[in-house]
Amino acid sequence: MQVGYRSIARLAVVQFPGSNCDMDCVWAINSLLGLKAKLVWHKETKLSDFDGVVLPGGFSYGDYLRPGAIARFSPIMDAVRDFAEEGKPVLGICNGFQILCEAGLLPGALVRNRSLRFVCDRVWLKVENKKTIFTSRFGEVDVIRLPIAHGDGCYYADEATLGQLEKEGRVVFRYVNRDGVADVASNPNGSCNNIAGILNEKGNVLGLMPHPERAVFENLGLTYGRLIFNSIVDYFLSDEYRWS
Protein backbone atom coordinates (compact mmCIF):
# COMPACT_ATOMS: atom_id res chain seq x y z
CA MET A 1 0.00 0.00 0.00
CA GLN A 2 2.97 2.36 0.56
CA VAL A 3 0.93 4.66 2.72
CA GLY A 4 4.15 5.81 4.32
CA TYR A 5 5.47 7.08 0.99
CA ARG A 6 2.46 9.25 0.30
CA SER A 7 1.77 10.00 3.94
CA ILE A 8 -1.83 9.81 2.89
CA ALA A 9 -4.60 7.25 2.78
CA ARG A 10 -7.37 7.41 0.23
CA LEU A 11 -10.94 7.11 1.39
CA ALA A 12 -13.81 6.45 -1.00
CA VAL A 13 -17.01 8.27 -0.10
CA VAL A 14 -19.76 6.36 -1.86
CA GLN A 15 -22.46 8.50 -3.41
CA PHE A 16 -25.86 6.84 -3.70
CA PRO A 17 -28.84 8.57 -5.29
CA GLY A 18 -30.24 10.37 -2.25
CA SER A 19 -27.02 10.60 -0.25
CA ASN A 20 -26.83 14.07 1.25
CA CYS A 21 -23.86 14.00 3.60
CA ASP A 22 -21.44 12.90 0.89
CA MET A 23 -19.94 16.34 0.34
CA ASP A 24 -19.77 17.02 4.09
CA CYS A 25 -17.75 13.82 4.45
CA VAL A 26 -15.39 14.72 1.62
CA TRP A 27 -14.93 18.24 2.99
CA ALA A 28 -14.35 17.04 6.55
CA ILE A 29 -11.94 14.26 5.57
CA ASN A 30 -9.92 16.47 3.21
CA SER A 31 -9.46 19.03 5.97
CA LEU A 32 -7.51 16.49 7.98
CA LEU A 33 -3.84 15.75 7.58
CA GLY A 34 -3.15 12.27 6.29
CA LEU A 35 -6.41 11.52 4.51
CA LYS A 36 -7.69 12.19 1.03
CA ALA A 37 -11.34 11.59 0.15
CA LYS A 38 -12.86 11.06 -3.26
CA LEU A 39 -16.48 10.57 -4.29
CA VAL A 40 -17.33 7.24 -5.84
CA TRP A 41 -20.63 6.84 -7.67
CA HIS A 42 -22.63 3.82 -6.52
CA LYS A 43 -22.62 2.34 -10.04
CA GLU A 44 -18.85 1.84 -9.84
CA THR A 45 -17.70 -1.70 -9.19
CA LYS A 46 -14.13 -1.28 -7.98
CA LEU A 47 -12.51 0.14 -4.87
CA SER A 48 -8.99 -0.99 -5.65
CA ASP A 49 -7.65 2.60 -5.60
CA PHE A 50 -8.71 3.09 -2.00
CA ASP A 51 -7.55 2.26 1.51
CA GLY A 52 -10.88 2.81 3.24
CA VAL A 53 -14.57 3.37 2.47
CA VAL A 54 -17.15 5.71 3.94
CA LEU A 55 -20.87 5.18 3.35
CA PRO A 56 -22.30 8.62 4.09
CA GLY A 57 -25.64 9.72 5.48
CA GLY A 58 -28.74 10.71 3.59
CA PHE A 59 -31.80 9.03 2.18
CA SER A 60 -30.54 6.63 -0.46
CA TYR A 61 -33.35 5.73 -2.85
CA GLY A 62 -35.68 7.92 -0.80
CA ASP A 63 -35.66 5.32 2.00
CA TYR A 64 -38.13 3.33 -0.14
CA LEU A 65 -39.08 -0.06 1.34
CA ARG A 66 -36.73 0.48 4.31
CA PRO A 67 -33.72 2.78 4.75
CA GLY A 68 -30.77 1.15 2.99
CA ALA A 69 -32.85 -1.71 1.56
CA ILE A 70 -32.30 -0.78 -2.08
CA ALA A 71 -28.84 0.81 -1.77
CA ARG A 72 -27.66 -2.52 -0.48
CA PHE A 73 -28.04 -3.89 -4.03
CA SER A 74 -26.09 -1.06 -5.70
CA PRO A 75 -23.22 -2.35 -7.87
CA ILE A 76 -20.56 -0.85 -5.55
CA MET A 77 -21.78 -2.96 -2.63
CA ASP A 78 -20.07 -6.12 -3.90
CA ALA A 79 -16.79 -4.23 -3.76
CA VAL A 80 -17.64 -2.90 -0.28
CA ARG A 81 -18.33 -6.46 0.85
CA ASP A 82 -14.97 -7.68 -0.52
CA PHE A 83 -13.30 -4.68 1.09
CA ALA A 84 -14.82 -5.55 4.46
CA GLU A 85 -13.82 -9.19 4.12
CA GLU A 86 -10.24 -8.15 3.39
CA GLY A 87 -10.22 -6.37 6.73
CA LYS A 88 -10.02 -2.83 5.34
CA PRO A 89 -11.78 0.00 7.20
CA VAL A 90 -15.43 0.61 6.35
CA LEU A 91 -17.30 3.42 8.10
CA GLY A 92 -21.08 3.77 7.78
CA ILE A 93 -22.61 6.98 9.05
CA CYS A 94 -26.37 7.28 9.59
CA ASN A 95 -27.87 6.02 6.31
CA GLY A 96 -24.50 4.33 5.78
CA PHE A 97 -25.05 2.42 9.04
CA GLN A 98 -28.52 1.42 7.86
CA ILE A 99 -27.06 0.18 4.56
CA LEU A 100 -24.40 -1.88 6.35
CA CYS A 101 -27.07 -3.55 8.49
CA GLU A 102 -29.30 -4.24 5.48
CA ALA A 103 -26.29 -5.70 3.67
CA GLY A 104 -25.60 -8.00 6.60
CA LEU A 105 -22.13 -6.51 7.16
CA LEU A 106 -23.32 -5.49 10.63
CA PRO A 107 -25.86 -7.37 12.75
CA GLY A 108 -29.32 -6.07 13.67
CA ALA A 109 -31.42 -3.40 12.03
CA LEU A 110 -32.37 0.26 12.37
CA VAL A 111 -36.08 0.87 12.71
CA ARG A 112 -38.37 3.88 13.08
CA ASN A 113 -37.59 6.10 16.09
CA ARG A 114 -39.78 5.11 19.00
CA SER A 115 -41.14 8.67 19.13
CA LEU A 116 -42.04 8.44 15.42
CA ARG A 117 -40.39 11.85 15.08
CA PHE A 118 -37.36 12.81 13.05
CA VAL A 119 -34.72 13.83 15.59
CA CYS A 120 -32.22 16.57 14.79
CA ASP A 121 -30.11 17.32 17.84
CA ARG A 122 -26.75 17.07 19.53
CA VAL A 123 -26.34 14.07 21.77
CA TRP A 124 -23.89 12.89 24.40
CA LEU A 125 -22.18 9.61 23.70
CA LYS A 126 -19.95 7.34 25.68
CA VAL A 127 -17.00 5.85 23.84
CA GLU A 128 -17.29 2.31 25.14
CA ASN A 129 -14.37 0.80 23.27
CA LYS A 130 -11.22 2.78 22.51
CA LYS A 131 -9.26 -0.15 21.17
CA THR A 132 -10.71 0.00 17.69
CA ILE A 133 -9.21 1.44 14.52
CA PHE A 134 -11.91 4.14 14.67
CA THR A 135 -11.52 5.19 18.31
CA SER A 136 -7.86 4.78 19.26
CA ARG A 137 -7.41 8.57 19.48
CA PHE A 138 -10.01 9.15 22.18
CA GLY A 139 -7.45 8.64 24.96
CA GLU A 140 -8.81 10.14 28.17
CA VAL A 141 -11.98 11.35 26.48
CA ASP A 142 -14.90 9.19 27.63
CA VAL A 143 -18.00 11.24 26.91
CA ILE A 144 -18.33 13.12 23.65
CA ARG A 145 -21.00 15.08 21.85
CA LEU A 146 -22.02 14.65 18.22
CA PRO A 147 -24.93 15.78 16.04
CA ILE A 148 -27.67 13.34 15.04
CA ALA A 149 -30.36 13.70 12.38
CA HIS A 150 -32.51 10.69 11.64
CA GLY A 151 -36.02 9.26 11.61
CA ASP A 152 -35.03 5.60 11.61
CA GLY A 153 -32.23 5.30 14.14
CA CYS A 154 -33.65 2.90 16.68
CA TYR A 155 -31.14 0.05 16.81
CA TYR A 156 -32.79 -3.33 17.14
CA ALA A 157 -31.28 -6.79 17.50
CA ASP A 158 -32.47 -9.94 19.27
CA GLU A 159 -31.32 -10.66 22.83
CA ALA A 160 -28.64 -13.13 21.75
CA THR A 161 -27.08 -10.67 19.31
CA LEU A 162 -27.19 -7.84 21.87
CA GLY A 163 -25.54 -10.08 24.44
CA GLN A 164 -22.80 -11.00 22.02
CA LEU A 165 -22.17 -7.37 20.97
CA GLU A 166 -21.90 -6.32 24.63
CA LYS A 167 -19.67 -9.23 25.60
CA GLU A 168 -17.28 -8.71 22.73
CA GLY A 169 -16.96 -4.94 23.26
CA ARG A 170 -18.56 -4.26 19.89
CA VAL A 171 -20.90 -1.57 21.20
CA VAL A 172 -18.55 1.31 20.46
CA PHE A 173 -20.83 4.30 21.07
CA ARG A 174 -23.75 4.54 23.47
CA TYR A 175 -26.24 7.37 24.05
CA VAL A 176 -25.71 8.74 27.56
CA ASN A 177 -26.37 11.87 29.56
CA ARG A 178 -23.57 14.40 30.02
CA ASP A 179 -22.36 12.47 33.05
CA GLY A 180 -21.92 9.35 30.96
CA VAL A 181 -24.94 7.47 32.30
CA ALA A 182 -27.04 5.55 29.78
CA ASP A 183 -30.63 6.28 30.81
CA VAL A 184 -33.97 6.37 29.01
CA ALA A 185 -34.02 10.17 28.81
CA SER A 186 -30.76 10.29 26.89
CA ASN A 187 -31.84 7.71 24.33
CA PRO A 188 -33.04 9.81 21.38
CA ASN A 189 -34.64 7.04 19.35
CA GLY A 190 -35.37 4.08 21.60
CA SER A 191 -32.34 2.01 20.57
CA CYS A 192 -31.82 -1.29 22.40
CA ASN A 193 -29.23 -0.81 25.18
CA ASN A 194 -28.88 2.87 24.09
CA ILE A 195 -26.71 1.68 21.20
CA ALA A 196 -25.48 4.43 18.85
CA GLY A 197 -22.66 2.60 17.05
CA ILE A 198 -21.41 -0.95 16.62
CA LEU A 199 -18.47 -2.82 15.19
CA ASN A 200 -18.37 -6.03 13.15
CA GLU A 201 -16.70 -9.16 14.47
CA LYS A 202 -13.40 -8.50 12.71
CA GLY A 203 -13.28 -4.93 14.00
CA ASN A 204 -12.91 -3.18 10.63
CA VAL A 205 -16.53 -2.16 9.96
CA LEU A 206 -18.11 0.54 12.13
CA GLY A 207 -21.66 1.82 11.80
CA LEU A 208 -23.00 4.74 13.80
CA MET A 209 -26.05 6.99 13.68
CA PRO A 210 -24.33 10.24 14.86
CA HIS A 211 -22.48 12.38 12.32
CA PRO A 212 -18.75 12.74 13.02
CA GLU A 213 -18.28 14.60 9.72
CA ARG A 214 -20.46 17.41 11.08
CA ALA A 215 -18.18 17.80 14.07
CA VAL A 216 -14.79 18.54 12.57
CA PHE A 217 -14.64 22.33 12.35
CA GLU A 218 -14.46 24.56 15.42
CA ASN A 219 -16.72 27.17 13.91
CA LEU A 220 -19.48 24.57 13.68
CA GLY A 221 -19.33 24.01 17.42
CA LEU A 222 -18.14 20.45 17.94
CA THR A 223 -14.87 18.78 16.97
CA TYR A 224 -15.13 15.27 18.46
CA GLY A 225 -15.64 13.87 14.98
CA ARG A 226 -12.00 14.59 14.22
CA LEU A 227 -10.96 11.96 16.73
CA ILE A 228 -12.70 9.26 14.70
CA PHE A 229 -11.06 10.29 11.42
CA ASN A 230 -7.69 10.84 13.10
CA SER A 231 -7.93 7.35 14.61
CA ILE A 232 -8.24 6.06 11.05
CA VAL A 233 -5.12 8.05 10.07
CA ASP A 234 -3.25 6.46 12.97
CA TYR A 235 -4.36 3.05 11.82
CA PHE A 236 -3.00 3.65 8.31
CA LEU A 237 0.30 4.76 9.79
CA SER A 238 0.51 1.81 12.18
CA ASP A 239 2.85 -1.11 11.67
CA GLU A 240 -0.17 -3.40 11.81
CA TYR A 241 -1.46 -1.82 8.61
CA ARG A 242 1.80 -1.11 6.82
CA TRP A 243 3.03 -4.66 7.09
CA SER A 244 -0.33 -6.26 6.33
Binding site: A69, A109, V111, Y156, A157
Partner: peptide
Protein backbone atom coordinates in the same frame (compact mmCIF):
# COMPACT_ATOMS: atom_id res chain seq x y z
CA UNK B 1 -33.86 -10.42 0.84
CA UNK B 2 -35.45 -7.28 -0.59
CA UNK B 3 -39.09 -6.78 0.33
CA UNK B 4 -38.62 -7.64 4.00
CA UNK B 5 -35.78 -7.59 6.49
CA UNK B 6 -35.79 -10.96 8.32
CA UNK B 7 -34.22 -9.32 11.40
CA UNK B 8 -37.36 -7.29 12.08
Amino acid sequence: DLLSNPVI
